[in-house]
Simulated assay, not measured.
Amino acid sequence: MSHTAHIPSHRKPRRSASKMALRAGVAGGVLSTLAVAGASGTASAAEPVAETAALPTLTADLASQSAQAADATQQRAAAYELQATQESAAAKAVKQAKKDKATAERKAAEAKKKAEAEAKRKAAAAARERASRAAERTTLSTRSGASTPAPAPVSAPASGSVASVISFLKAQLGDAYVMGGTGPNSWDCSGLVQAAYRQAGVSLPRTSQAQSTVGTQVSVSSAQVGDILYWGGAGSAYHVGVYIGNGQYLDAANPSKGVVIQNLSGYPASGAVRVL
Rank of each mutant, 00 (worst) to 15 (best):
E116N: 10
R143S: 10
E87M: 04
T139Y: 15
P149Q: 04
K95T: 11
T148S: 12
T85G: 09
A78K: 10
A102H: 03
A176D: 13
P184K: 00
T85E: 12
Q194A: 05
F168A: 01
T103Q: 14
R106D: 13
L169T: 05
Q199V: 03
P151K: 06
Q74P: 00
L204N: 02
E116T: 08
G180L: 10
D175Y: 03
Y80N: 11
C189T: 02
I166H: 02
R143W: 14
Q199T: 14
A91E: 07
Q211C: 01
Q96C: 06
V178M: 06
T139E: 12
A119D: 11
A176M: 05
K95A: 14
Q74C: 00
Q172E: 08
T207D: 14
A196L: 06
G191P: 08
L192T: 01
A127D: 09
G145A: 14
A102I: 05
K92E: 15
A70G: 05
V94L: 15
A125M: 11
S186C: 01
D175K: 03
R198G: 07
A115S: 09
V202I: 13
R133C: 02
T73C: 04
A126N: 10
G183M: 00
S208D: 12
Q96T: 15
V94Q: 15
G191R: 05
Y177A: 01
V154C: 02
A89N: 11
Y197M: 05
A97R: 15
A200L: 11
E105F: 04
Q172V: 01
T138W: 07
A91Q: 07
A150C: 00
S164D: 10
A119Q: 13
G160H: 08
A84H: 13
R143L: 15
S159R: 07
K122Y: 12
D175F: 01
I166T: 07
S203T: 15
K92D: 15
Q199R: 10
A195N: 05
P151C: 06
D100V: 06
M179K: 09
R130W: 03
T207M: 06
G174Y: 07
T139I: 11
K92P: 00
K92A: 15
A89Q: 13
A109W: 05
A119G: 07
P153C: 01
S144E: 12
S159H: 10
R198A: 14
A91C: 01
S141M: 07
A196H: 04
A124V: 11
Q86S: 14
G180P: 09
K170N: 09
S155C: 02
E110K: 13
R130G: 04
K99L: 12
